[in-house]
């Protein structure tokens, strides 16, 4: 392979550099977002102490909702992690650092899809577990509930229109495939918006989401799309196709980010 395209040692040097940059600028934010559960816990307990006179922490539902909200904020935050590339001074520095565009891109993708989400998940799970260990009023932790009900969640998801699919792998697959594809789609979409738009990055992202949804709705009505999920097989086919389409679009976002890096000028 051409050394100017990818070199293991150079990539490792770049990845370490990128990690340090992330640590100095963005990991603390990812950790902070992951600690949202603790903030909600303090608010809940304080509220109940002041207005109810009892010590009562947030239940499972409130904690899951907090986790989902924090996850959404983390998604939006992806417009900021590499958003500085559109800034003339910082973007110029980035482009002039000696690593190939592919190496810079690969590191960016790894940070966005693995490193930052892992930090967020670790922070969220640790806070939730710690809160549940220290305060019995909140009940079981999200991790314990997930592990206790893993089997039944998978099986119940396999039950469609009365037809029960006992295959454990099917139930698991029906959740994980689309979830991973949707996760990649969302994170890469906001990252792409971050490196493409100079200003109002989140606003532009929402404008595109709105325009895209409207277009899809119009197409759906016009072409009379009819999704048949009456049986396990048709549901499996539909979800399989949808997962591949979403994953394909996410891959296009990834390619778009590479293209943007390659053609960015300051």
């Amino acid at each position: 392979m051409n050394n100017n395209f990818f070199s293991g040692s150079r990539f490792w040097a770049w990845f370490k550099y990128d990690l340090r940059q992330m640590w100095q600028n963005h990991f603390k934010a990812a950790l902070g977002i992951g600690l949202a559960g603790l903030i909600v816990y303090v608010i809940f307990v304080s509220w109940n102490l002041i207005f109810e006179g009892t010590w009562q922490g947030p239940g499972l539902g409130a904690r899951i909702a907090t986790f989902m909200l924090a996850g959404t904020i983390l998604e939006l935050y992806q417009t900021r992690t590499y958003g500085y590339l559109t800034d003339k001074r910082k973007g110029s520095s980035f482009l002039m650092l000696p690593a190939s565009t592919f190496e810079k891109w690969l590191s960016m993708i790894l940070m966005t899809l693995i490193v930052i989400p892992v930090i967020f998940l670790a922070a969220s799970a640790s806070v939730d577990t710690l809160v549940c260990l220290l305060d019995p009023t909140v009940g079981d932790s999200m991790l314990k509930v997930l592990s206790d009900n893993f089997n039944s969640i998978s099986k119940s998801l396999a039950e469609v229109n009365g037809e029960i699919q006992e295959d454990f792998g099917f139930g698991l697959g029906i959740v994980t495939g689309p979830a991973i594809a949707a996760f990649c789609f969302n994170f890469l979409f906001f990252l792409l918006c971050g490196v493409c738009f100079k200003r109002y990055k989140i606003l532009w992202a929402f404008v595109i989401i709105f325009a895209g949804s409207t277009l899809l709705s119009i197409l759906g009505v016009t072409l009379d799309w009819n999704v048949n999920t009456d049986t396990v097989d048709t549901l499996r086919s539909f979800l399989g196709a949808a997962t591949w389409i979403v994953a394909g679009i996410a891959a296009c976002f990834g390619a778009g980010i590479f293209l943007r890096l390659k053609t960015l000028q300051h």
């Binding site: 050394n3 100017n4 070199s7 150079r10 000696p98 690593a99 190939s100 565009t101």
Partner: peptide
């Protein structure tokens, strides 16, 4: 403009 790492270095 190819921004080859060898040249950037």
């Amino acid at each position: 403009f190819d921004r080859d790492p060898a040249l950037l270095g």
